[in-house]
């Protein structure tokens, strides 16, 4: 094992780990507020390592949805990881074998993917494994602390912390929407559909988890048909 490469990877993952810690604190507090035990919330974060998917998953758990609804929701919300894994797979090249791939795929999140693709030197297994360390620790540890604090903290602070995940989503969406008009169109369309499912009669009877899936698929499909991406846009 090349420890220099490993150390370089850990250093690269450091800011992501700090960011994950603060945001997952919000996830933990939100889970605790909805009656999920701290240990269970921590297990969700350790095994899933995805903000949007966990957030939607929590909604479904609280709503006592079916397992199929859960699988379908995760498939749609996390489908973007398939594309990222595909791209990262090409970038890793033939040298990297099956076992490291099985490990690296586990922590291929939006941020780790972006950092890995941005590296100028060739990607190595120790580097990629090092990158995952602090984000995993930060995401899991933050959830545990947030869930523990969540049951002690006053309600005002708890609700304030719960907003952090939304804040993070907004921070992810706004910059590309500002740069790319097609993304802005997709965002506005998803927003309109989401309001429809929240407020329109009949439509608002659909469960929240399924409404997210329907809005996402419909908005993305319409945009893909009307505004297909140019070569440079994908990733």
């Amino acid at each position: 094992m090349n420890w220099n490469e490993y150390r370089a990877g850990v250093q690269c993952g450091w800011p992501v780990g700090v960011g994950y810690f603060s945001v997952s604190f919000g996830f933990g507090a939100m889970a605790a507020a909805q009656g999920v035990a701290p240990w269970e919330a921590t297990l969700i974060s350790l095994t899933n390592l995805t903000s949007a998917g966990q957030f939607a998953g929590l909604t479904l758990v609280v709503a006592c949805a079916t397992l199929w609804e859960m699988v379908l929701t995760q498939l749609v919300i996390n489908s973007r990881y398939a594309l990222m894994s595909l791209a990262l797979s090409q970038r890793m090249g033939e040298r990297i074998g099956l076992l490291p791939r099985l490990l690296i795929a586990f922590f291929n999140t939006d941020e780790i993917f972006a950092l890995a693709m941005a590296r100028k030197e060739p990607l190595t297994v120790p580097y990629l494994l090092g990158m995952g360390l602090l984000p995993i620790l930060g995401w899991t540890g933050g959830t545990l602390l947030g869930a523990l604090a969540g049951s002690v903290l006053p309600v005002a602070i708890r609700t304030a912390l719960g907003v952090m995940l939304y804040g993070m989503f907004i921070a992810v969406v706004v910059p590309p929407a500002k740069k790319d008009r097609d993304v802005l169109a997709a965002v506005l369309l998803a927003m309109a559909l989401s309001c429809l499912f929240a407020w329109a009669p009949v439509l608002n009877r659909l469960s929240e988890g399924l409404a997210i899936v329907v809005c996402t698929v419909v908005a993305a499909a319409i945009c893909a048909a009307v505004l297909p991406v140019k070569e440079a846009q994908t990733l």
């Binding site: 489908s79 973007r80 595909l86 797979s89 099956l98 099985l102 969406v173 997709a186 996402t216 993305a220």
Partner: peptide, 30 residues
């Protein structure tokens, strides 16, 4: 995709669809 499908996606519609998914999904949740 990291272990089995190593070929890039050819369909332009599918690539566009996957490109828009994260933005639509995060917006609909927020």
């Amino acid at each position: 995709p990291m272990t089995i499908f190593r070929k890039p996606i050819q369909s332009r519609f599918l690539r566009s669809f996957l490109y828009y998914i994260p933005y639509c999904c995060l917006t609909a949740m927020t």
